[in-house]
């Protein structure tokens, strides 16, 4: 694996709706500056926004990181809990545990995780109840 040429960490706080979307907007801006192709850009845009909103809506806060090598874009979301009790259920389309605040803002359609998986070339999720969830998504550049 080639060395990471760009690494950026974005702390994302729970229920911070005023800043929600800022991390993914910055990620998009950076990828456009790197000249990442429109197709990959579109998929990263969708996935990074979904994963950032997941941190805001469902987690106790965490960090979204961006890593870019000449071969791939890697997004890693690592949160501080609460963890997902049933991963299989969480990956189903339409399943959501979003609260009223999130739903009133138009979120919580239960498409977040399936959407991320659909848009990424590589997708991996690990969750430990009480500890937290880590999602890794890879997007191939060539």
């Amino acid at each position: 694996m080639s060395s990471t040429l760009l690494h950026e960490d974005y702390p994302v706080e729970a229920e911070d709706y005023t800043r929600a979307g800022e991390a993914s907007a910055d990620i998009k801006r950076k990828l456009k500056q790197l000249g990442v192709s429109a197709g990959v850009l579109r998929r990263v845009s969708v996935a990074s926004y979904e994963v950032e909103l997941n941190l805001v809506i469902h987690s106790r806060g965490g960090v979204l990181s961006l890593e870019v090598t000449p071969e791939r874009v890697l997004l890693v979301s690592a949160d501080r809990g609460p963890g997902i009790p049933d991963l299989e259920l969480a990956m189903r389309e339409g399943w959501s545990t979003a609260n009223e605040t999130a739903r009133s803002l138009g979120f919580g359609a239960g498409m977040g995780l399936p959407n991320m998986k659909r848009n990424a070339d590589e997708f991996d999720i690990e969750s430990q109840l009480g500890t937290g969830t880590t999602i890794r998504m890879g997007f191939l550049l060539s």
């Binding site: 040429l5 790197l34 000249g35 000449p70």
Partner: peptide, 8 residues
């Protein structure tokens, strides 16, 4: 892209 990353 490698140069772009260094510049970024």
């Amino acid at each position: 892209i490698t140069v772009a990353m260094q510049k970024l």
